[in-house]
């Protein structure tokens, strides 16, 4: 178990991440990630286990750099993807935050995310819920940043579409 200060700073980073997504503060959200950060959403296999090797099995989303995440942001922000035109309104709730010390000053943070999604065009709402695991590490400026984020989507029977900001 990590000390109180670590728990506080890790939790705050997760809440900040949620806030940036919900306010569409895309650049601020991206800045929370390290250059070579991994953003991973596995799929579920028929045997009830999630995929565990993104190089040999399918993922819903697998990005291994901030540049790849930026592509996703650019697409939503471009106004040219009809799936996000206009972008959904979301409310990300992060709870059950558990912080563990990991190797080399890093923190492993487990949490539950519930994301309410409102599709403005369709006047329709959905909820996605997932188990999250963040690996946080101090960046060059000493601030804690996301080295990896694995989001295990529990309700993966997907109505229409999902994207990085709707789960």
């Amino acid at each position: 178990m990590a000390d109180d200060a670590a728990v506080k700073s890790a939790s705050e980073l997760l809440y900040r991440e949620a806030l940036y997504l919900d306010t569409h503060a895309w650049k601020d959200w991206l800045d929370l990630f390290q250059e070579d950060a991994v953003f991973w959403v596995p799929t579920w296999k028929d045997d009830g286990e999630p995929t565990s090797d993104p190089q040999a099995e399918l993922s819903l989303i697998y990005c291994s750099s901030r540049d790849q995440l930026k592509e996703r942001i650019d697409r939503v922000a471009s106004g040219r993807s009809i799936a996000s035109l206009p972008p959904m309104r979301t409310a990300h709730t992060v709870s059950n935050v558990l912080v563990e010390e990991a190797e080399a000053q890093a923190l492993r943070v487990k949490s539950v995310a519930t994301t309410h999604v409102y599709n403005i065009k369709k006047r329709e709402q959905n909820v996605f819920f997932s188990l999250q695991e963040h690996l946080l590490r101090p960046g060059q400026d000493g601030r804690l940043a996301i080295a990896s984020k694995k989001l295990l989507l529990l309700n993966d029977y997907i109505p229409r579409m999902i994207d990085f900001y709707t789960i």
């Binding site: 190089q55 993922s59 819903l60 697998y62």
Partner: peptide, 30 residues
């Protein structure tokens, strides 16, 4: 393995309902 990894990344990129192409098709059907 090199081909397989390239294949998987291209697949996710284009075909997934969380990718860059299929969600726009699906939205158009609706």
């Amino acid at each position: 393995r090199e081909a397989r990894v390239a294949r998987i990344r291209q697949y996710e990129d284009f075909f997934n309902p969380s990718g860059f192409a299929t969600p726009d098709d699906t939205t158009a059907y609706e």
